Amino acid sequence: MDIKLELVAVPVTDVDRAKAFYEQVGFHTDHDVTVSEEIRFVQLTPPGSACSIALGKGLTRMAPGSLDNMQVVVADIEAAHTELTARGIEVSEIDDQPWGSFVYFSDPDGNGWAVQQTVPRKAPEA
């Protein structure tokens, strides 16, 4: 049996502000549908990803900003850091760990993201 993670709800206070932020990061808007005054569904997908995020109104009971450590993976952390910075995203410096190299950022509500290169840039010190 295949089980595929395809959609994760991200709790936000302002759907338009969050949508603009994730588009600035580089996510593609797949859907933006207002179903009623109580429900709006916005689906965005990172380039090359099989999993999308959903922003909206009436989608989740999680508090805005409560999602922490969502993780995406890239082949080149230095290129990702450079591109995100060029797009105006405030990212951390590169954090090298034995299990990978990371940069971190948060959306306007404080939902936290990690960008990981699974092969560390530097070999662990002995």
Results as ranks from 00 to 15, higher is better:
38 E>Q: 15
46 P>W: 10
31 H>Y: 15
59 L>V: 14
51 C>S: 15
39 I>P: 05
54 A>Y: 00
67 L>R: 04
54 A>C: 14
45 T>D: 01
68 D>Y: 04
43 Q>T: 15
32 D>K: 02
61 R>Q: 06
74 V>Y: 00
45 T>F: 01
63 A>G: 00
65 G>T: 08
34 T>L: 08
51 C>Q: 12
44 L>C: 05
65 G>Q: 02
26 G>A: 08
59 L>W: 02
48 G>N: 09
59 L>K: 09
74 V>P: 00
25 V>Y: 02
76 D>I: 05
41 F>T: 04
75 A>D: 15
51 C>W: 02
66 S>K: 06
48 G>R: 04
39 I>S: 07
39 I>F: 08
48 G>V: 03
55 L>H: 09
41 F>W: 15
41 F>K: 05
58 G>A: 06
57 K>P: 00
47 P>K: 11
76 D>F: 08
55 L>V: 11
32 D>I: 04
35 V>Q: 08
69 N>I: 09
44 L>D: 02
50 A>Q: 13
46 P>S: 15
44 L>H: 06
47 P>I: 01
49 S>H: 07
43 Q>F: 08
75 A>K: 10
72 V>E: 05
70 M>A: 14
63 A>D: 12
41 F>E: 06
47 P>W: 00
45 T>W: 03
61 R>S: 13
49 S>D: 13
70 M>E: 10
68 D>S: 14
60 T>P: 07
63 A>N: 11
54 A>P: 00
75 A>Q: 03
37 E>H: 12
70 M>D: 06
72 V>W: 15
30 D>G: 03
63 A>T: 13
35 V>T: 11
36 S>Q: 02
36 S>A: 04
32 D>R: 10
56 G>H: 01
43 Q>E: 15
59 L>A: 04
28 H>T: 14
65 G>R: 07
60 T>C: 09
75 A>H: 03
74 V>G: 06
57 K>C: 06
75 A>I: 00
45 T>E: 10
66 S>A: 06
63 A>Q: 14
39 I>E: 02
48 G>L: 05
34 T>E: 14
26 G>K: 06
50 A>C: 12
47 P>H: 10
55 L>D: 07
